[in-house]
Computed example of a mutant assay.
Amino acid sequence: MPGYFISAGIELKDGANLDKAEQGLRLLTEQTRSEPGCIFFEIRQNLKEPGKFTLWECWTDKQALADHFEADHTKAYLAQDLTEVNYIEELTEIGETSGAISS
């Protein structure tokens, strides 16, 4: 499947309300899936640490992801200041990396 793949880890900020974060992330997921350029957008919650979440995303290209951060619903979720990003990974199919170093 062609596309721009992202995996991101986020977690609840100290003092933030978990129920409010869960509701906000559900709404963000629903709204994001209808954005132009969104191929898929999933958020999963850690079973052992419910305040941690993993986002799996695929966009048509980097610009579609950039546009996502300019969407009103994305800005509204981020303005609540409930979660913070721990990591972001850009991913591709095995063997499709350009400039990869062989060992």
Rank of each mutant, 00 (worst) to 15 (best):
G3A: 06
S7G: 11
L12E: 06
A16S: 09
A16V: 04
N17H: 06
N17D: 12
L18F: 08
A21N: 03
G24Q: 04
G24Y: 05
L25S: 10
T29S: 13
T29R: 10
E30P: 00
Q31N: 12
S34M: 13
C38V: 04
I39E: 09
F41I: 04
F41P: 00
E42M: 05
R44H: 02
Q45K: 14
N46R: 14
K48E: 13
P50S: 12
G51D: 00
T54L: 09
W56A: 06
W56E: 05
E57R: 07
W59R: 01
W59H: 00
T60L: 03
T60V: 06
A64W: 05
D67M: 13
D67E: 08
D67W: 09
F69T: 13
D72V: 08
D72S: 12
D72P: 12
H73D: 05
H73T: 04
K75W: 06
L78N: 12
L78D: 09
A79H: 10
Q80C: 06
Q80E: 08
D81P: 09
L82A: 09
T83R: 00
T83I: 08
E84F: 04
E84Q: 15
V85G: 12
N86P: 02
N86R: 14
Y87A: 13
L91V: 04
L91S: 07
T92W: 13
E93Q: 15
A100P: 02
S102F: 00
S102I: 01
